[in-house]
């Protein structure tokens, strides 16, 4: 069973492709784009088939629309305050709710200073198809751990979800190369939103264009472009 899956690792699969489990199946974990359908595994998205040791499989696809998933960190825009929750736009099909108590050090007396229009970096604790998604700005120990409201300055942009995942890979080659162009701060949300802050507005715009451009470039093309930009920007 896992043999027939392993054979296809790295290949492009299309919706409707099926892996059948003829023999007694071993334990397999199906990630995004794969569904168990009785005795077979059905591919339901187009993309590259990936595998992680020992038995995790998923489809790596390039899409633009975000679907909330539990535990993912995202950049949201606060769109409304209603009672004791904030409504946050995360790019999904409905607004996520964020309780004012879900910030580090927040109590009923000591409310966090969040205004409509602010950006927040937060994590999903509830995200499934039947319920309203819910965000928190602290980890299980009650620490902010990098989450919370963004400060002044910086530039928010939207890139594809595939690119975001490439940026978040540990030791990402893409980030390493970008670092060499010029110094900057970057926050990457899994919903396709990237916030950057650099010395000047010009640098931030250049970064935005580079990120957008490198989506469809091979490694060599990327090297060439990055080198040219590093030489030409002051």
């Amino acid at each position: 069973m896992s043999d027939c899956l392993k054979e296809k690792v790295g290949e492009v699969l299309l919706p409707g492709d099926v892996f059948s489990l003829e023999r007694k199946p071993e334990k397999v974990i199906c990630g995004p784009g794969l569904r168990r359908n009785g005795d077979e595994i059905l591919v339901c998205k187009s993309g590259i088939f990936r595998h992680k040791h020992p038995n995790m499989y998923w489809i790596d696809s390039q899409q633009k629309r975000y679907v909330p998933a539990k535990g993912e960190s995202v950049i949201g825009i606060v769109t409304a305050k209603s009672g004791d929750v904030f409504k946050v736009d995360v790019g999904g099909s409905e607004l996520a709710s964020l309780s004012y108590l879900a910030f580090e050090g927040a109590t009923k007396r000591n409310r966090p200073n969040v205004k409509v229009g602010d950006l927040v970096y937060a994590q999903f604790i509830i995200a499934n198809k039947d319920m309203e998604p819910e965000l928190v700005c602290m980890d299980s120990c009650g620490r902010a751990n990098g989450m919370g409201v963004f400060g002044l300055g910086g530039l928010l942009m939207k890139v594809s979800l595939g690119l975001v995942r490439r940026l978040l890979v540990p030791q990402s080659a893409l980030v390493k190369e970008l670092e060499k162009v010029f110094p900057f701060e970057m926050v990457v949300g899994l919903n396709g939103r990237v916030w950057v802050k650099a010395q000047s507005t010009q640098h931030m715009l250049v970064l935005g264009n580079l990120l957008e451009g490198c989506e469809n470039m091979t490694a060599q093309q990327r090297h060439a472009v990055f080198r040219r930009v590093a030489d030409s920007t002051p």
Partner: peptide, 11 residues
Amino acid sequence: LMDTGLPMGCL
């Protein structure tokens, strides 16, 4: 539909 990444049972 395939480009959007919506879950599909078949093409």
